[in-house]
């Protein structure tokens, strides 16, 4: 087992220091208190600031604990904030793919639709925002299961009691099948469904990541199986490309630098 990571130990010490006393300290005070070089302390503070754990007062330059620390237990990213940050990219994805776009987050073992863009053909469609979708039968749900440990645990519990709910004969049925499907999602970085939530319906989705790569939601297209998939039943590569590009663009906007 590897030893402790020094920079994390130091970051923890800085947070403890800021949690004491007045809670507002300058760079020199922090560096001196912990016996760190100013450059080292500054680097750690900058990173803590980036993830929202530390805030710097604009006028005095002093550091204090950030609001994100206080909300550690609650939702990481407000769903309405997510929609507002993703809306232009979702529109562009609908325009490029010609399909409806949805963004989903995990809510108590289901996919909560937080944003929906109509298929750009001006046919009669109604907003799905607020609707709940099954996790194991939709591309968006599979992405959330593959990357969100809490979501996976909720559904795992349900599987223990027996089979997953069946919507068609192609819906993933067993715990084993689901694990295999999710391993593929993690390997490829995207998910799909074809005739699994309903016959003739298909979808492709990719993860939306925030700071540090944390998956905060999934974004995907959905439509008729014959449009989404090729004759072999696989999603068309250009559509997969559009979905991944759009999800990556949103992730970059949310601060996920490496994806």
């Amino acid at each position: 087992m590897p030893g402790p990571v020094q920079s994390i130990e130091r970051a923890a010490a800085i947070l403890r220091l800021l949690a004491q006393g007045s809670g507002r300290l300058g760079l020199t005070e922090i560096a001196n208190s912990l016996g760190l070089a100013r450059g080292t302390a500054h680097g750690i503070l900058r990173t803590l600031q980036l993830v929202g754990f530390v805030e710097q007062d604009e006028a005095t330059g002093k550091y204090q604990l950030g609001a994100a620390l206080l909300h550690l237990g609650t939702s990481y990213l407000d769903v309405n904030e997510l929609r507002s940050r993703a809306i232009n990219w979702a529109d562009a994805l609908a325009a490029r793919s010609g399909e409806a776009v949805r963004i989903g987050t995990h809510l108590q073992g289901k996919v909560l639709v937080v944003h929906h863009v109509f298929r750009p053909d001006d046919s009669l469609q109604t907003l799905d925002v607020g609707m709940l979708l099954p996790m194991h039968a939709t591309a968006i749900g599979k992405v959330l299961l593959a990357y969100d440990a809490n979501a996976a645990a909720t559904v795992q519990d349900a599987v223990q009691d027996g089979e997953l709910e069946q919507f068609t004969r192609r819906t993933v049925r067993t715990h084993k099948e689901l694990s295999r499907a999710l391993a593929t999602v993690r390997e490829h970085g995207w998910a799909s469904d074809a005739d699994e939530a309903g016959m003739g319906e298909a979808g492709v989705a990719a993860p939306i990541r925030g700071y540090g790569g944390l998956v905060v939601g999934a974004m995907g297209i959905s439509g008729a199986t014959e449009r989404i998939c090729d004759s072999g039943g696989r999603p068309r590569p250009e559509l997969v490309g559009y979905v991944r590009d759009a999800a990556r663009a949103v992730s970059r906007d949310l601060g996920a630098s490496r994806w």
């Binding site: 529109d91 325009a95 929906h116 863009v117 109509f118 750009p120 053909d121 001006d122 469609q125 907003l127």
Partner: peptide, 8 residues
């Protein structure tokens, strides 16, 4: 011009 969303 395409409709992206509609509220009724």
């Amino acid at each position: 011009w395409h409709r992206a969303a509609q509220w009724t």
